[in-house]
Design a binder for these strands. Sequence first.
DNA 1: GTGACTAGGTGGGATAAAGTGGTAAATTAA
DNA 2: TTAATTTACCACTTTATCCCACCTAGTCAC
Lengths: 144, 144
Amino acid sequence: MLIGEYIHTIDNKNRVSLPAKFRKEMGRVLVVTPGLDNCLFIFTKKEWVKISEKLSEFSMLAADNRSFNRFMFGGATEVDVDNIGRFLLPDFLKTRAGLSEKVALVGVQNRVEIWNDTKWSAYKKLVEKQADSLAEKLGGAGML
Amino acid sequence: MLIGEYIHTIDNKNRVSLPAKFRKEMGRVLVVTPGLDNCLFIFTKKEWVKISEKLSEFSMLAADNRSFNRFMFGGATEVDVDNIGRFLLPDFLKTRAGLSEKVALVGVQNRVEIWNDTKWSAYKKLVEKQADSLAEKLGGAGML
DNA sequence: GTGACTAGGTGGGATAAAGTGGTAAATTAA
DNA sequence: TTAATTTACCACTTTATCCCACCTAGTCAC
């Protein structure tokens, strides 16, 4: 289970440190894809296989499924984690997610998301404000 | 059952003592998550597993579920309790709950809540004032 | 009632790990 | 063959973790 958030920097060679807490669980081969809400998704190789199988099940006949699959597959890139836990972020993905020097790496269940850190903190504040629906869902999850 | 309230301090390394009364019941591995009313929740690892399974049921295709899961998983952190009963609170959670030096640790059923102690005492006063009407409602619900 | 002991809570220093930046080697392209 | 880009390696800085010591309050014995 991937949880927690970490603020890291993209250096001038587009290298990003995978947070140490994630390394053991994710292994040395990752798949980075465009994500929803203007962030990137990082999956383990294994998870990616599962997801891509599910995506394949969507009919190619519907135009919006087709474009969604193009979105996910077309942008997907396999990257290797080096000995000290860093991987190389392709330029086109960096651009797509509007990333600059500081990024937030966020563990969400089976994936890690990469956010522009400014966008991430704005996004968090927004969600926090929706207390009503938050409480409702917390109750549904058995937390309250 | 976790009950009672304790005022502790966060030291300059973000360490917090888990009240001694809670230690035996909670074990050495805890999960801290964002809560409601600007506090944090502490669960045992075991409780968290249950909760995360329920959270996983929310589909990630709906935007509001997606943001909720980001909020909860991204905001959660696994922490270890050291030999003398302390754990390390990540900066981003400390910030999120507006915690400063003094915090209230409050046992509530299956979880412990962490409050800014000022907010906690204000909250208590508020609830005390509303006690009469609260009691009435609870009575109406057949609870008392 | 006084003093010693115990347990809970707090603080700080030493060590290890994580994160970041840069250089050297290797590969590819021109 | 040379230049440019990529990959691997090395080094530094900062942060986290572990361990030990201290302080305070409550308890028990005398």
